[in-house]
Computed example of a mutant assay.
Amino acid sequence: MIIITLFISLLAYIAFAHLHIIETAKKATPKNLPYLIVLGAKVNGEEMSLSLLYRAETALTYLTDNPSTKVVVTGGKGPGEDITEAEALNRFFREKGIDESRILIEDQSTSTYENMKFTKDLFEIEEAVIVSNDFHLYRAISLADNIGIKGYPLAAETPSAVKAYNYLREYLAVLKMYILGT
Rank of each mutant, 00 (worst) to 15 (best):
N166A: 15
R139L: 05
A59K: 08
K27S: 10
S132Q: 05
Y13E: 03
L53E: 08
T182K: 15
N66M: 15
G76S: 10
G76R: 10
V129G: 03
L137Q: 06
G40L: 14
I37Q: 10
I98Y: 04
F123A: 02
H18Y: 14
S9C: 15
L175E: 11
S68L: 12
K70G: 06
E170D: 11
D107R: 05
L36C: 11
L6F: 14
L10R: 07
I103N: 00
Y165A: 12
F92R: 02
T58F: 03
V71M: 07
V73H: 05
L180Q: 13
G80D: 01
A144K: 02
L89Q: 10
Y138E: 09
Y13Q: 07
K163I: 10
N146Y: 05
V73E: 04
S142V: 09
V162E: 07
A28Y: 13
K176M: 03
L175T: 13
Y13H: 12
I98C: 06
S101L: 04
I8E: 01
A15H: 05
G80W: 04
D99N: 15
D145W: 03
N44L: 15
L36R: 04
L172D: 13
T74H: 11
E127V: 12
A86H: 10
K120C: 03
V131A: 02
D99H: 12
G75A: 10
L143H: 07
N66P: 05
L33S: 11
L33I: 10
Q108M: 09
Y138L: 07
I141V: 15
T24A: 07
L36S: 04
V73I: 05
L10H: 11
Y138I: 01
N90A: 06
L53V: 09
I147T: 03
F118G: 01
L122K: 09
I105E: 02
A86I: 07
A15V: 11
I103R: 02
V129R: 04
K42W: 02
S68H: 15
A56V: 12
F93D: 12
T74Q: 11
A56H: 13
L175N: 14
G45E: 00
N166F: 14
G97P: 00
K150G: 08
A41C: 09
L63M: 05
G181E: 00
A28M: 12
P34A: 11
L172N: 11
R91F: 02
K163F: 13
K31N: 15
L104C: 00
G40K: 08
T29L: 10
Y54G: 01
